[in-house]
Structure formats: C-alpha cells, structure tokens
Design a protein around this nucleic acid. Structure first.
Lengths: 180, 180
DNA sequence: CTTTGCATGTAAACCGTTACATGATTTT
DNA sequence: AAAATCATGTAACGGTTTACATGCAAAG
C-alpha cells in the first residue's frame, strides 16, 4: 500500500494527537505549512480513504454532544504504515517554487532600480517568514522534539536568506551609486 | 491578460535567445529547475497559446532545411507582457515541498539512529545540489547578470542547509553517545 | 442578535508529471 | 547499422487550490 503525501501528513498529525480534519488543518497551517502545505480539499477526502483502508478509525459522532466532530485515531496498520514511510531510505523529495528567484533570473530585462526593489521584496518575504516562526518559537521549544527541530531549521534558513539578500542589496546599491 | 507561470518562464527564456520548446526545456533543466521546473507537457501547449495571443511569433518551418524545428521570437506585445510581470510589485510567490523536513517533523516516532540517518540523507541531498551548481559556476560567472545571481544564491543556500544539518548531526550524535 | 469560530465537506478548475508516440539527424 | 540526440507533441492521470455550501455554538 503506498500512501499519498497528504495521507502521510494526516497519519503523522493524528499520531501527534490531532483528531479531526479541522485540527489537522490548524496544526498544518502553523507548522508544516512552511515546507508542506495541505488544504481541506485534500484532507477530508483523504481521511475517508484512510479509514476505508483501515489505517485510521473513528467512532460514530455522538448524537447531541454539541459539535458535529468525528474524532479519529490511528489503527495498528496506520501506525505501521507511518513508521514504514519514516524508515524508508529513498532519498526524500525536494521541490522549490520561488517566483522571486525566477524574476531575479530574468532581471537583466529590468532597470537596476527595479532589480534592487525585487531583491528588497524577496528579503522582506524571508524576514516576515522568520518573524512568524519566531512568534511560535517559545511554544515549540517547550514541546521540543521533531517539530522544534524543523522550526529551528526554518528559522535559521529564512534568516540566512534574508542576510544573503541583504548582501546582494548592498552590492546592487554600490553598483548603482558608481554609475553616476 | 494574465500569464501562467509557465508562460512567464517561456517568455523569459525566449528573451534570453532560446527559440524552440526543446531549447527552452534544455535551459530550464540546467538553470531554473532548482527553483522553477517545467516539463514538455507544459511547454509545448503554452507555446501554442502564447502564439495564439500574439506574444510570440514563429515562421513556418522551412521545408527541407533539415531539422523540423519551429523557432519563435518575442513580439512587442510579448516583450511588454514580460516586462509588466517583472515590474509588478505584488509579493512574489514562494512554495517549498521538502519531504525530508516533513519526516523530521514527525521523527519523534523514529529511533534516534534512524533520525540521524534521515538528517544525513538531507545533508547529502543539499551537498549534491551544491555540487551540481558548482559544476556550472564558471560558465555562469562568465555570462554574469541575473542567471549568475541566482546561481550564487542557490549555491550559498544549499551550502548553508548542508552546514546547518551537519550541526544537527553532531547534536544528535552526542545525544546518542551520552545515552550509554 | 450578529459576528466569529468550530466543523465538515464537495465540485470545478487548474496545474504538472509521466509515459508514450513519432520521426529525423548525428555520432559511433 | 545501431545508438544517441534533436525535436515536437498528446493523453491520462494525479495533485492542489479555490470557491462554495451548510450548520451549530460561543462571544460580544
């Protein structure tokens, strides 16, 4: 049985204690979103598929207990499937789509000032991403483990990009100044 | 008229002198692939659409001149559309899919040795990416401009990731050693 | 009593990869 | 003569986003 990427995220999130599609989406949006996003349109259908295949199970929603939520948990098969993926040694996929870099690649068609503006915008984007991560740093440190490692990594990474782009800005600025 | 992402890549590549779908794909695969990939399945249909909209134009393939290639060039409208996109100040999209980070996020379900293996695999991936970029560094430096900037950025970026992950390895190794 | 948040879901549209088909030309 | 490379393209599939629809509960 091979799992889709979304299925793996769900299995992992359920193992971390998230019980509903809504809760999974919440956590994705403040954590893995930075390196792995998922939408409701993927989550709910995948939850159903996982249950059909016996990797998760949920009780019938208790009538009249208020919210119509349908909490699920991992089955043994689900736990095994998750572990199998985590252990599988095939080189993990990596894919980046960075429109700023694409523009920078083609930026010989821009005015020097515009190129500088682009680099500043990219810089800003990484600055903001780092700030958002810093906002949840204390909470993540308290919990520790894998989630905290990825947060530290993401933070270091965005800080690095911001710094490198700041250097490029200085380069472009002095080239601009010299031109006069 | 708004362009798809693929359309913008094509326009940019044609402006850089690439004349056929094949040539565009070639260049994408050794340059923008690292932050923006494109496949034949996107390129050829998009070439047709761009020509229908008058952003590029091509002569009829000269019969009997050998290869059945159909070289295109930018029209004025195409040049304008490209410039418009490059100048547009809306914050450029950024999206990452990093399966290694996803595994790391869930790695509390792994044995410490397995987690270390994962980090080493990620480290290795960035090392290899950096090596591939280094292989085209001299050629890119000679041409300079935007393409060279993105290459330097990509190189710095993968080197940084490799270095950070090496640090995490040391952390995990000493935690492993202490456990005994 | 109205807005915000919890909660679940679907349909359409869009994007992108993969695999395949075809055939000419160049190199070995 | 065979293999590699140049060159163009399509069909099927699968993944992803977006927009929409629904309704209850809590808070203001």
């Amino acid at each position: 049985m091979d799992l889709s990427a979304t299925a793996r995220v769900i299995l992992g999130m359920v193992r971390l204690g998230r019980q509903t599609g809504y809760e999974i989406k919440q956590l994705v949006d403040v954590s893995t979103r930075f390196f792995w996003a998922a939408s409701y349109g993927q989550i709910y259908p995948e939850l159903r598929r996982l249950e059909e295949h016996g990797l998760i199970e949920g009780d019938e929603p208790v009538a009249g207990d208020g919210r119509q939520r349908r909490p699920v948990r991992l089955t043994e098969a689900g736990e095994r499937a998750l572990a199998e993926w985590l252990r599988s040694g095939d080189e993990p996929g990596y894919e980046l789509r960075d429109e700023g870099m694409l523009k920078l690649f083609f930026s010989d068609a821009m005015e020097p000032e515009e190129r500088l503006g682009l680099v500043r915008a990219m810089h800003d984007g990484h600055e903001q991403a780092a700030a958002r991560l810093r906002g949840i740093e204390d909470a993540a440190r308290a919990r520790g483990g894998g989630p905290y490692m990825t947060l530290r990594y993401g933070l270091a990474f965005h800080d690095f990009c911001a710094g490198w782009l700041a250097g490029l800005e200085r380069e472009l600025e002095s080239a601009l100044a010299e031109r006069r």
